[in-house]
């Protein structure tokens, strides 16, 4: 996995609470069997005025000039500023793939939905949690200041604003570690395969019904 250590980039605001993963990437794109290519359809229903789909060329569609990410000043943004409960709803990891594919490396919000939050770490996207008053302040500043850039430092657990203010954030040690090093989760777990086998042996004795084979009752 792609590591994240620190990143400096343009901030773009999505000023509404409870942004769900259906809004981040609508259902029609979930028919793709790939992990890439979702970027142009990030926030699709907001970004375009006409309907889209995997079989429709996005270049031929009408863009919604009012949608914040379509505004010239936010082109090239790589950090997303959001409100509470960001990424709620469906577990679709496509939402994280779409953000990443569209060039985002970090999200900043006061809170996230659990599944979205853990999906971020599997894809090198850093979800930074700041408290609501700090997020408010960033909303005010980014809207008032074209070219507003932040520096997000995972090693130091800080976000630095253009005027040098340093905002600290908390993050779980294990998650920070895997993201800093870009470690392969599955590889790490497989280093413990003897323990998994020992656990299975014990459970097969204690609770054999848990190992019911799905091929049973197969008819």
């Amino acid at each position: 996995m792609e590591p994240f250590i620190r990143h400096k980039g343009l901030l773009a605001p999505i000023d509404r609470p409870n942004v769900d993963t259906d809004a981040i990437i609508p259902k029609q794109y979930l028919k793709s069997i790939k992990r890439t290519g979702f970027g142009p359809n990030l926030f699709d229903d907001w970004r375009y005025l006409d309907p889209g789909g995997l079989d429709i060329d996005n270049a031929t569609r009408r863009r919604n000039p009012d949608f914040v990410l379509n505004q010239p000043r936010y082109q090239g943004a790589s950090i997303l500023l959001a409100r509470e409960n960001f990424g709620c709803g469906s577990s679709r990891e496509h939402a994280v793939w779409a953000l990443h594919d569209a060039g985002f490396r970090a999200v900043i919000a006061p809170s996230y939905a659990d599944i979205f939050y853990s999906n971020c770490f599997k894809n090198g996207l850093l979800p930074v949690t700041l408290d609501a008053t700090e997020v408010d302040r960033l909303f005010r500043e980014v809207e008032a200041t074209p070219g507003y850039e932040l520096e997000v430092d995972l090693e130091a657990r800080t976000v630095t604003t253009p005027d040098g203010a340093v905002l600290r954030f908390d993050i779980d040690d294990f998650r920070r570690e895997t993201l800093l090093k870009g470690l392969d989760d599955i590889g790490l777990t497989l280093e413990k395969q003897d323990r998994i086998r020992a656990y299975e042996q014990r459970r097969r004795r204690e609770a054999p019904w848990l190992f019911a084979d799905t091929a049973r009752g197969a008819g």
Binding site: I115, N119, D172, D185, I186, T189, Q193, I196
Partner: peptide, 22 residues
């Protein structure tokens, strides 16, 4: 509980997940 696709792969490969208790 629901999981993302990377976790689907993790479960397929290891029958386990790395989690924090809620």
């Amino acid at each position: 509980f629901g999981i993302g696709t990377s976790e689907v792969e993790h479960v397929l490969a290891t029958q386990c997940l790395v989690l924090k208790k809620s």
